[in-house]
Design a protein around this nucleic acid. Structure first.
Length: 116
RNA sequence: GUCGCAGGCCGGGUGACCGCGGGCCUUCGGGCUCGAGGAAAGUCCGGACACCGAAGGGCAGGACGCUCCCGCGAGGGAGGCGGCGAAAGCCGACGGACAGUGGCACAGAAAACAGACCGCCGCCAGCGCAUCUCCGGAGACGCUGACGGUAAGGGUGAAACGGUGGGGUAAGAGCUCACCAGCGGCCCUGGCGACAGGACCGGCUCGCCAAACCCCGUCCGGUGCAAGGCGAACAGGCUCCGCUGACGCAGCCCGCCGAGGAGCCGGGUAGCCGCACAGAUGGAUGGUCACCCUCGACAGAAUCCGGCUUACAGGCCUGCUACGGAA
RNA sequence: GGCGCAUUCGUCUAGUGGCCUAGGACACCGCCCUCUCACGGCGGCGGCACGGGUUCGAAUCCCGUAUGCGCCU
């Protein structure tokens, strides 16, 4: 994922949290907020320590980046996104596989369409 | 061969396509190359490095504590001693309790320096009484009480003031003797040493706790890369202290220095350096497929290095103990 | 990443190395009181985070592990 497609400042995260909207499922929470000068979508990830140890968190982040990368052209542009992982995802992901993770992301993305 | 013990090692592999981070090259299409661990972990010890005043002194505080060797040190290796084990082997913060202070619950007479509740013994007094009698008394024995001696025995306790036996005594006691245990001194032998073995002498016995305060010896200044250095753009502004000594080593005191310093707002911010032969600053190793095997544990670098500790599927190698078998 | 602190019934907490079989309050359960509930009374259940060590003896002292919290940006 290119640098232009990533959230890179703590301020940007704060802006999305404070001023953006959010949807959530059993496993994920997705915030989004419109950019000041609409451009390509930017993406940020937050995996709390409660999810697991460092190895489990790193693995989840890599897989979720892969998932997001595959959906870049389908995601509405002009927005910043922050995806938060909720506890329990690591165990479910190892049990159900990579495709299952993709379905969970599609789930919350569909909810943003409904909310908009 | 089985069980056990010690030490060391590996920690899925190969290939294809699509991706990620750094570096180099580039004809800007891309190409080449490197890219997590033995513990990267816990942050328990050191050190490097950086700042605090030049890295000063004392107190306070902290860490460590058998011997030798290596090491600045933390620590490691080899040994001694003590404990566990049948053995190989494992475990141990292991200086000092006659420098001082303090503690040892319950139980028990008594818990640390000696003392004496019961008991035992002597003597005196009173009372009772067998017996004797010169009828005045004497009185074995028993009871009670005062005084004195003694510490052998006493349902305790984690621990009881050496143990066993002989002598000795009114009763007893290291009071004395023999052996044993322990303590101190001196000497001999072995060892660099801790220490081990032995001989002699002495007083006869001196409890445990210092991971209780403490004493002795050795060592340690503090803070930590969010340390610290450079440092914008807009755009500078305000308050206070100070040669009668400020600010300054941060717990305290001393000594020392000597002109600037402290606080607030933008801002000591952004960014760069620190920062690496992996190496970022939202933080790099993933996805899919195929084949093979023993179907893969614990687990992910954030300044670096060394040590300690903890976690770990399965497998391999070497040495050793015990038992069994074969030659 | 670095530094510091804490952990005792379900919850909040007491606890000079021995009076500890760890005390109290709230909660929970049973009984009594009441026409019933509440209040009140009596009784019960239930805990020293875990593993070692020092000591005759550890919730307490020491070491390690686990968990939680705070500060530095």
């Amino acid at each position: 994922m290119k640098r232009a497609n990533r959230l890179s400042r703590s301020r940007d995260f704060d802006a999305v949290y404070r001023q953006g909207r959010s949807v959530s499922s059993r496993f994920l929470v997705l915030y989004w907020f419109g950019q000041e000068e609409p451009a390509a979508p930017r993406f940020g990830l937050s995996v709390p320590k409660a999810v697991g140890n460092a190895v489990a968190r790193n693995k989840l982040k890599r897989q979720l980046r892969e998932v997001w990368h595959a959906r870049l052209d389908r995601v509405p542009a002009g927005r910043d996104y922050v995806l938060i992982v909720r506890p329990g995802v690591a165990e479910a992901a190892t049990a159900n596989g990579f495709d299952w993770l993709g379905e969970r992301v599609d789930e919350v993305l569909a909810m943003t369409q409904a909310a908009a």
